[in-house]
């Protein structure tokens, strides 16, 4: 029987480390009380933004998807509506980053990427909620609050990521 080996590259190690930090931040955020249900600071997105800007978009996609799956498994909400909510938010924001990744860095810093991604995140979550979880037009009543929180936390996360990138310059 021949021995088959999986070659683990440095890139895999990097993805694993970053995903671990992202999962840890997700768990901390889960236990942090929030005044309005559903409004979360999304601090794990700091790691994902950091990954995208220090390394590349592919690694960011890996970290984001791994984060969603691992967090839901740890919290016991795998395949529950919460998981699908989280997954759809992550997929929509990654999709928006793929669409907009060619924006020139001379005019658009990571702040606009963060804002675009956070807007896409809540849009993705509202799509899933409207189509499946609460099929009632009344939920759009909550949209202004979520747009405002996406704006504020998108900005805050972008500034924190910027600071992180300053401390760990691209090699």
């Amino acid at each position: 029987m021949t021995l088959s080996t999986i070659n683990i590259s440095d890139r895999d190690h990097q993805i694993a480390k970053l995903s671990a930090i992202a999962v840890a931040l997700s768990l901390i955020e889960f236990f942090f009380p929030s005044p309005i249900p559903g409004v979360k600071p999304g601090i794990a997105n700091i790691i994902i933004l950091y990954t995208i800007f220090k390394f590349d978009l592919r690694m960011g996609i890996w970290v984001s998807i791994i984060r969603v799956f691992v967090t839901s498994i740890i919290l016991g909400s795998f395949l529950s509506p919460t998981f699908f909510l989280s997954l759809s938010g992550a997929l929509f924001s990654l999709l928006s980053l793929i669409i907009f990744k060619n924006l020139s860095p001379k005019y658009f810093s990571l702040i606009s990427f963060s804002l675009i991604a956070s807007l896409a995140h809540i849009v993705g979550q509202f799509v899933i909620v409207r189509l499946w979880i609460i099929p009632h037009n009344g939920i759009f009543y909550l949209l202004p609050i979520f747009i405002l929180s996406a704006f504020i936390f998108g900005l805050v996360n972008a500034l924190v990521t910027n600071r992180l990138l300053q401390l760990n310059p691209k090699k």
Partner: peptide, 22 residues
Amino acid sequence: KIIKPGDWLIIVLFCALIIIST
């Protein structure tokens, strides 16, 4: 100092979105 002109565009569009949705 970090915010660039394109960012201001996105920020303004976002604020407009907030006001319109409200």
